[in-house]
Design a protein around this nucleic acid. Structure first.
Lengths: 176, 176
DNA sequence: TACGTCATGTAAGCTGTTACATGATTTC
DNA sequence: GAAATCATGTAACAGCTTACATGACGTA
């Protein structure tokens, strides 16, 4: 991919699992190339406009595989909503309820998007998945698509759990 | 609290909802005092050792209330485990399974700790909760404790959901 | 020719992490 | 007298965010 394509990718489906701001991408690409993880190939669009398309080197693929197979440290927790509910007794119940309802609405929007993406993965219908499957034994296609879809099903279920929890919290707020 | 007490607090129960490294605490306390949110009172322990105990000013309490009642922006998602499973087809199923089992074990440890803390909150049995309740109408005690316990029940349920998901993922890995 | 998209960059500033550093007091 | 705990700091660095900046190409 080029830096531009990566930027768009991180602003679309990918941001649900990992995000990177545009300003990080170009410096990082250069750094990774310097470290031999990726190799850039300069292409021409028109007469003056150059674009550099990067692909993984063998070393980069090996490093990626190492990363995938290695347990990653869990990031420190910083959950603003839980903190707000912990201190809910300092404000009016209605104020806390408004915050929770806002959160519920946000989760519902995400749930809809994730469900759509999950369905597309199960149908083998996203461009990146199709490219990935092209190099793989057809008998593995179902399994690979199912695993990727399973990732999005976790996002959906976690958000649904959160919505249910927030609704219960509203009940407790009002002395339920 | 003093900076030392805050440090310990963030290294114990509080870190489950919010963490702050020790190196941040003393500079932040000075900054917050400068901004009028907290006021420090210097105490003497022995002859030479001074400790500064901070408490919220009225302005600080107002600012805290404002923060609690205001929807906080959701942080960008960066979930290493989901990313590892998304790319699981690049490694052997057993390698991915090991990562998932490691995650399951970590979650189970946390679940146990959170359950204990939840029970203590429901029984009104933590020092901070008792201090908080002391200034409140006894008829609210039950509700306040229940809300705080509900926060920890969300942590527990989210982790349990995650464990169940990881077990399903292992099944899919092996062609289930 | 104007607007949208393609494509790549830089700079300032904030937050957070890791690590190091120091000295007083209490306890065994 | 040694070790644990109390108590407070600092420095270097990594990572991320926000914002700004520039120019080429396609198309209506």
């Amino acid at each position: 991919m080029t830096g531009y394509e990566l930027t768009q990718f991180f602003e679309s489906a990918a941001k649900w699992v990992w995000t990177a701001p545009q300003s990080q991408i170009y410096p990082l690409l250069r750094q990774m190339e310097k470290n031999g993880l990726i190799a850039g190939e300069v292409q021409l669009r028109g007469e003056k406009l150059k674009r550099t398309s990067y692909s993984l080197t063998e070393e980069g693929l090996a490093e990626l595989r190492r990363w995938i197979a290695e347990p990653q440290p869990e990031p420190p927790t910083r959950d603003a909503l839980l903190l707000q509910v912990l201190f809910a007794d300092l404000v009016e119940p209605e104020e806390c309820e408004a915050v929770l309802r806002n959160h519920i609405a946000e989760q519902r929007v995400k749930i809809r998007l994730w469900r759509e993406h999950e369905a597309r993965l199960l149908a083998g219908d996203t461009p990146l998945l199709r490219e990935r499957l092209a190099h793989r034994d057809p008998k593995d296609h179902q399994r690979i698509g199912a695993l990727k879809a399973h990732v999005f099903s976790e996002l959906v279920r976690a958000a649904e759990q959160r919505v249910a929890w927030a609704e219960e919290a509203i009940g407790i707020l009002h002395g339920g």
